[in-house]
């Protein structure tokens, strides 16, 4: 018997505080795949890489390193479902392992709270846990509700795979891992020109100037429509999900009522939960802010996913 894979679960801010359905779906999917998720007691904001990293590098790395020490104490690799959290924790872990000066500054700050960064664990994204640890073969076996006929556009986002020479995950100009993972559900992949473009929310831009951020998002939506449209957009990041989901309501506010989009936006965990045969109610898919705010009919109901 091989040991059950186990990860300490870094939730971040947006998943547990705004899109809890992602947390629930992830717990369901990891349980189905026999992978353990340990609670990460007392973890804070990652902190947001584009935001805090833009303010003060040492503070950013110190708060991220504090989170890493919780995992080090538990002797467990981290997994997280947010590209931003992944970038903060992975980058900090990587930089602290390679930059002696930064490590010294960070450990001085951590000494204030009785902690020390040791560099003994790895940071993964759900995508890594699903693709590398569980594997596509196992995932395919759990798909009891194939998403055949569902048109699925993808938004892989930026920080899981970029910068490509540092992260060494996938070819960021021609990625295949996230696509293969989503295609395991038998949904129909819809390629579109701006698939690899940023959603617009990152780097503190959503906070600095919402309209500029939404302009990115709008370009992506129009690009999907130009490719024949899609029922859903799947992403591995809750911040992208927020931008693409609530963004549909916000774009109408900022750019005019005529800009109506009706994409369901799912986190890859939510897509897999559906494909594994779980009902939307089991993880509260209807709590997505878009559905709550404009009370639209989710496409997945129209598609007959609700039995």
């Amino acid at each position: 018997m091989t040991k059950r894979p186990s990860f300490i679960h870094f939730l971040g801010c947006i998943i547990p505080h705004r899109y809890p359905s992602i947390q629930k779906a992830t717990e369901i999917v990891f349980e189905d795949l026999d992978m353990e998720l340990l609670p990460m007691e007392g973890a804070s904001c990652c902190p947001a890489p584009g935001v805090f990293g833009s303010f003060d590098r040492v503070t950013w790395a110190s708060i991220a390193a504090r989170n890493l020490t919780i995992a080090e104490q538990a002797k467990a690799d981290v997994t997280t479902g947010c590209n931003g959290c992944f970038a903060s924790l992975w980058d900090a872990n990587h930089e602290l392992k390679h930059d002696e000066e930064l490590r010294q500054a960070v450990n001085e700050a951590l000494a204030e709270v009785g902690r020390e960064f040791k560099g003994t664990i790895e940071v993964t994204h759900y995508v890594d846990a699903l693709y590398d640890t569980a594997g596509l073969q196992k995932i395919r076996k759990h798909v009891v509700r194939p998403m055949t006929g569902v048109r699925m556009a993808l938004h892989p986002g930026c920080h899981w795979m970029r910068p490509k020479l540092v992260k060494q995950k996938d070819d960021s100009e021609k990625p295949h891992i996230f696509r293969e993972l989503c295609e395991a559900t038998s949904a129909e992949y819809v390629p579109y020109k701006d698939e690899l473009m940023c959603c617009g929310a990152g780097g503190a831009v959503r906070t600095a100037d919402l309209k500029v951020a939404l302009d990115f998002t709008k370009q992506k939506f129009d690009s999907i429509l130009a490719a024949g449209g899609a029922d859903m957009i799947v992403t591995p990041c809750p911040f992208c999900e927020l931008q693409l989901d609530a963004g549909q309501v916000e774009i109408q506010k900022h750019f005019g009522e005529e800009h109506t989009y009706t994409f369901d936006v799912l986190h890859v965990s939510e897509l897999l939960a559906l494909a594994f045969g779980h009902e939307p109610e089991e993880f509260g898919l209807a709590t997505h802010l878009q559905y709550m705010q404009r009370k639209s009919e989710p496409n997945w109901e129209r598609l007959g996913i609700k039995i």
Binding site: G53, C158, R162, E173, G200, G202, G203, V205, A208
Partner: peptide
């Protein structure tokens, strides 16, 4: 403050 830190430029810069 308009850079979203998407790292596309970083992946393409010929001079690293």
């Amino acid at each position: 403050w308009y850079c979203t830190t998407c790292y596309t430029c970083t992946d393409r810069c010929p001079q690293d």
